[in-house]
Amino acid sequence: MTATGTPSRTPAPVALALPAGVGSLTTRPLTVGDAAAVTALVARCEQHDVGTVLIEEADIVGDWQRPACDLATQSVGVLDGERLVAYAEVYRGRWADAAVDPDHRGRGIGTALSRWTRRVAARDGGVVVGQPVPGDSPGERLLDSLGYRCLWTSWVLEVPAGSAIEPQPIPQGYIVREPRDEADLRAAWAVNEDAFLEWSDRERASFEEWAATVSMRPGYEGWQLRLMVDRDDEVVGMAFVIVSSGCAYVDKLAVRRDERHKGLARALLVDAFEVGRAHGGERSELSTDSRTGALGLYEKVGMQVTSVWRHWAADVMLASRP
């Protein structure tokens, strides 16, 4: 796939040039069998950089099963023997993820991964490539030093365990229910994509891409997808909640433009938190960023910021620099 999603010949893999002095480290493309190793690596980095683990293996698997994901040409792993100590991937020539084990930082591996992501993005027709990193972290300082720029700020917010969630009655004429069939899933996808594309600079995700991280996500059950429907049973809002390690995380929340300012988003949010608690999520989390203007909505239901992330990006033309 090119950055615009049009079919193309399978591109040649881009080699990762590791710096001198890293010893016997080896590199290779990732495979689906590496999902657990990547999860463990990212978890070590999150624990070190923000003091908590946010990732779970289903996040990785969901991303990797998207139709346009090709690990053979869009990913690279760095190994110390059999142990994965760093990795990077680039999706659709724009969206990068990379991490270096805290024990292997300061050796130039992160810089090499940055150069690799820009080369992959350039190969795939990208213009800008970037990724989120924890605020005030070594990763942020590295990207800043490499000429990246901060495009937006994200916040992870939490309702702590034991804290009351302020009720929000569902407006008259609406109900919240689970999806019944694929038509409901497609309606939720359309509402989600329409809402996020009002402010996001990404392309429209296909239904298959969206479903890979929602209804096809490992462990998915129907109660996780909350649909706000009107008197005609038409989907006008949606929320997707994931429960993991005692946390109910609202991964997606959207309301159709013409149905806003009625309290539907807040009602969906409270419903998602409540159903998450009913399925073992003692505390509740979500994230938002500075492009949405939604921070105030979440603070009004008693959520508190627990970590700050920033999306740093660079022009892929930097890949040609030494």
Rank of each mutant, 00 (worst) to 15 (best):
Ser114Arg: 04
Thr6Lys: 15
Val255Tyr: 03
Thr292Ser: 15
Val129Phe: 06
Met1Asn: 05
Val120Asp: 04
Leu30Ile: 05
Ser284Phe: 01
Ala15Arg: 15
Phe196Cys: 04
Ile175Ala: 02
Asp233Ala: 07
Thr26Arg: 14
His48Leu: 05
Arg180Ala: 15
Trp64His: 15
Cys150Trp: 01
Glu82Ala: 15
Ala20Tyr: 03
Ala96Asn: 05
His48Tyr: 13
Trp309Val: 01
Asp201Cys: 03
Val235Asn: 01
Ala188Thr: 00
His104Val: 00
Val275Ser: 10
Arg118Asp: 03
Arg180Asn: 13
Asn192Trp: 00
Pro218Tyr: 05
Arg310Pro: 00
Arg115Ile: 03
Thr27Asp: 03
Trp312Lys: 06
Leu54Arg: 11
Gly219Arg: 11
Gly237Ala: 08
Pro102Ala: 12
Asp289Pro: 03
His48Ile: 01
Ile55Ala: 10
His48Trp: 07
Ala112Val: 07
Thr10Trp: 00
Arg107Val: 00
Ala205Arg: 00
Arg28Phe: 09
Ala40Asp: 11
Asp181Lys: 09
Asp80Gly: 11
Asp258Lys: 01
Phe196Glu: 02
Asp103Gln: 10
Gly33Arg: 12
Arg291Val: 12
Ser290Lys: 04
Val241Met: 07
Lys252Ala: 08
Gln224Asp: 01
Asp124Thr: 02
Gly280Arg: 12
Ser206Asp: 03
Asp80His: 12
Tyr249Val: 01
Val229Pro: 03
Thr6Ser: 14
Tyr91Gln: 14
Val275Ala: 12
Thr6Cys: 07
Ile170Asn: 01
Leu30Trp: 08
Ser206Pro: 06
Phe273Asp: 01
Ala43Trp: 06
Val120Arg: 03
Met216Ile: 00
Arg105Met: 07
Glu182Lys: 13
Val250Gln: 04
Cys45Ser: 11
Cys247Ala: 11
Gly139Leu: 01
Trp309Tyr: 11
Ser245Ile: 00
Leu318Ser: 11
Glu89Pro: 00
Ala161Asp: 07
Gly173Glu: 07
Glu285Ile: 02
